[in-house]
Computed example of a mutant assay.
Amino acid sequence: MSRSPGSSGSASRSGEGRGQRTEDTDRVRLEVRAAWGMPRKDLLVRFAFGTGVSLLAAVVSTVFGSFVGGVFLAFPAILLASLTLVAKEEGLRRARDDVRGAGLGTSGLVAFAVVGTVLLRHHSAWLALGTATAAWAVVSLAAYAVVRAAGRGGDERP
Rank of each mutant, 00 (worst) to 15 (best):
T106S: 09
L55A: 15
R100F: 06
D155F: 15
L79Q: 01
F64A: 15
G154E: 11
F75V: 12
P39W: 14
P39M: 06
G37K: 11
Y144N: 13
A11H: 09
A81S: 15
E90H: 12
V114M: 10
M1N: 01
F67R: 04
A132I: 14
S82D: 02
R3T: 08
A132E: 12
G15I: 00
G91L: 02
R21S: 14
G17A: 01
V68C: 04
G130F: 11
A77M: 07
R18A: 13
R29L: 10
D97R: 14
G50C: 15
A137W: 15
L56W: 09
F47E: 01
V71A: 12
V60A: 07
R94P: 04
T106F: 15
L120E: 09
R96V: 15
P39C: 04
V138W: 03
A134N: 14
R21N: 09
G9P: 11
S54T: 15
A145N: 07
D97W: 07
H122T: 09
R21C: 02
P39I: 08
S8H: 04
R93V: 14
A87L: 11
G9E: 10
G91M: 02
A134M: 15
T117R: 04
R94N: 07
V115F: 09
P39S: 14
G17W: 00
S4W: 13
G65V: 07
S12Q: 12
G6N: 14
A48D: 02
F75I: 10
S12E: 10
A132V: 05
L119R: 10
P76R: 03
R152H: 07
V114L: 15
G15S: 03
T133D: 04
R40G: 06
A132W: 10
A77Q: 02
G101C: 11
V32P: 13
R29G: 09
L43C: 06
A134Q: 13
V86M: 01
V68H: 03
S10R: 13
A48F: 00
V110M: 03
A74I: 01
V59I: 14
R18E: 06
R157Y: 05
P76K: 01
S8M: 06
V86L: 03
A81T: 00
D98C: 06
A111E: 11
V110A: 12
G65A: 05
G91Q: 01
G108T: 00
R96L: 08
L80M: 08
S14H: 09
G15A: 06
L30P: 01
S8L: 11
A135V: 07
G105W: 09
W36G: 05
F64C: 13
P39E: 13
V147W: 15
